[in-house]
């Protein structure tokens, strides 16, 4: 009932796509879609692959994710625990206000920092040369 076109839908696909890029000992993971069981598993698979190849810190950019459910959160907690076991670091960025609050309530923000931008997140987890 405002000015927005009601037909202009925000597309949220059934499957979450995850892409990544390694920058030194930091890997950036971009998610696109719903972080549920399938999306969480995709993230975990990508994250563990990087950790196994010596990546120390992960940055999860969720700017293309609008929904996260509790299964997705529990998988992210598992990823976080794995990173902490390896004495690494994990940071989130690009969160919607709703997801930001969800992560804080569910305890993810207790051990992983949340940053507004990817640059801030990468800078925070990068070790000084």
């Amino acid at each position: 009932m405002g000015n927005a076109d009601p037909n202009e839908e925000i597309q949220v696909s059934e499957t979450c796509k995850v892409s990544s890029e390694r920058r030194g000992d930091v890997a950036i993971l971009w998610t696109d879609g719903y972080i549920n069981n399938q999306g969480g598993e995709e993230i975990a698979r990508e994250a563990y692959a990087h950790l196994d190849r010596g990546v120390r810190a992960l940055v999860l950019n969720l700017e293309k994710t609008r929904i996260v459910n509790s299964i997705g959160i529990s998988i992210l907690i598992e990823v976080l625990e794995k990173v902490m076991d390896k004495k690494g670091a994990l940071a989130f960025c690009g969160l919607t206000p709703t997801i930001d609050k969800t992560f804080r309530i569910m305890g993810l923000a207790q051990y992983a920092e949340i940053y507004p931008t990817q640059e801030d997140a990468v800078r925070s987890v990068s070790q000084p040369a």
Partner: peptide, 16 residues
């Protein structure tokens, strides 16, 4: 007052 945004907000939270 934007019906479209309102619908998204409700739906996303419900699914989540």
């Amino acid at each position: 007052l934007d019906l479209s945004a309102l619908a998204d907000e409700v739906l996303f939270r419900s699914i989540s």
